[in-house]
Design a protein around this nucleic acid. Structure first.
Length: 418
RNA sequence: GUGGCCGUAGUUCAGUUGGUUAGAACGCCAGGUUGUGGCCCUGGAGGUCGUGGGUUCAACUCCCACCGGUCACCCCA
């Protein structure tokens, strides 16, 4: 075999595209219910946009982006996430002048060059939402409710919501330095990964999976104790709203996000049906990002959710019940003349919105009936010389085997079809 | 990116201590007489045994590299 899809990319074949359509339709319906409108941005942007928003030192920017020079020697990057481009568009088109609060959602492919494994592809798909222009904790909670609502609608039973506050520009630096100095005391005993993180992202050391690291950091100060009054009350408000919404959640003061732009609220939704790649969705508040990207200062909050992982959970919990679409009518034709009439009838019926399928290969009646059955056609009409002469035929309802007489001139299908 | 495991028909797999024409099931195609599917029966097509080297008289079976997948780490959706 000469050509194959690039490592870490996948073809979505007809046997599963209907599952995707179902998920996407559910996402759109729910987004609408929460007042979000779709935005579609290009899948590539100037590299600097991502470096600026996500953070130069993050793993995503420093080693996972698909970055290349185009023919004009401009550095281009395939988007690794959706927020940066969404905010860029928000700023570029001055959406803040349209209304004081902008609520947007997106669905589409993202790109990150990581080592692939189940639930982690190089081209993967996310849906997500952004609310720009308000610092209300209600929106923080809405960002958690949105994906949870979608998961419930799709039939996912088990998930865990974990939240934290990562502070703001006033309180985080103080905590960060305090933590870093604590970490330096045990630096030599930390795992190599954590040693690296002490410099780049000390908060992340607390999130280490290394047993020894966990012991070393067990009694170290947590961000929760260092939040400023504003961050603290915001976080409390978020917790209260979650209580009110009756959404189970846990607070994890060690939770950190991989993107630098988060302030205050950070959260993650995980599923036990997944392996090590267990994050279904993640998000948080980014009150400084719009300004950082050159826009008029505006607070914002958002989330992103992975579609492949969502489908993985659904298939592992046997929750994929959606069937592919079927033809309303399959026309079986027995000879050349009948095939011409069948084609003509198909054109007429399709024009009326009826899904009609027929044989294009001159196959036997048996083969055509089998095909109609395999495709799940609801009705079958057999056309042969008898029908062409009499102008009448029988439409057979496949599930019951019952047959109804119809006139070919003005073909009517049993009611309920149109 | 690091380490472990895996890689045989479209799919899921079998394949004896390396030894002649690589099998099954499902799927696909065609038949089972006169114009009607689902079950059943029969037949057929389909594989350079991931790719490339090497060891050997001989390799799908051993070794190496690469490619792909997968598990964990890393990271995250």
């Amino acid at each position: 075999m000469k050509f194959r899809a690039i490592k870490g990319t996948k073809d979505i074949l007809p046997s599963e595209s209907h599952h995707w359509q179902w998920v996407e339709a559910t996402v759109r319906r729910t987004m609408h219910a929460y007042g979000y409108r779709e935005i579609r941005t290009p899948i590539f942007e100037q590299t600097a946009l991502f470096a600026r928003s996500i953070g130069e030192l993050t793993d995503i920017v420093s080693k996972e982006m698909y970055t290349f020079l185009d023919r004009s020697n401009e550095s281009i990057t395939l988007r690794p996430e959706g927020t940066a481009a969404t905010l860029r568009a928000y700023i570029q088109h001055s959406l803040e002048t349209q209304s004081s609060l902008t609520k947007l959602y997106y669905i589409g492919p993202m790109f990150r060059q990581e080592r692939p494994q189940a639930g982690r592809l190089r081209q993967f798909h996310q849906f997500g939402a952004e609310a720009i222009g308000s610092s209300s904790p209600q929106l923080d909670v809405e960002m958690m409710l949105l994906p949870l609502h979608i998961y419930r609608d799709l039939g996912i039973q088990q998930f865990n919501l974990t939240i934290n506050s990562v502070g703001c520009e006033k309180c985080r630096p103080t905590y960060k330095e305090r933590l870093r100095s604590e970490l330096m005391r045990v630096y030599d005993k930390l795992s190599p990964d954590s040693q690296r993180r002490v410099e780049t992202n000390p908060l992340r050391v607390l999130d280490s999976k290394d047993e020894n690291d966990r012991e070393l950091t067990a009694s170290m100060p947590l961000i929760g104790d260092y939040l400023c009054a504003q961050c603290s009350s915001h976080f409390n408000a978020v917790c209260e709203l979650l209580e009110m919404s009756k959404v189970p959640y846990t607070i994890d003061y060690r939770l950190v996000r991989g993107l630098d732009y988060y302030t205050k609220t950070a959260f993650e939704i995980t599923s036990t049906a997944l392996g090590s790649q267990d994050a279904l969705a993640g998000g948080g508040r980014y009150d400084l990002l719009v300004e950082e990207l050159g826009g008029k200062p505006a607070p914002g909050v958002g989330f992103a959710a992975g579609i492949e992982r969502l489908l993985l959970v659904l298939s592992r919990t046997n929750a994929l019940h959606i069937h592919p679409p079927v033809p309303d009518l399959y026309i079986v034709a027995l000879d050349e003349e009948a095939r011409t009439v069948a084609f003509q009838k198909a054109i007429e019926l399709r024009a009326r919105g009826i899904a009609v399928e027929l044989d294009y290969q001159g196959r036997s009646i048996k083969a055509q009936m089998r095909e109609a059955n395999k495709q799940g056609a609801r009705y079958v009409l057999v056309l042969g010389s008898n029908e062409l002469v009499s102008g009448k035929g029988m439409v057979k309802e496949m599930v019951s085997g019952k047959e109804y007489e119809v006139f070919l001139e003005q073909l009517e299908l049993p009611k309920g079809l149109e």
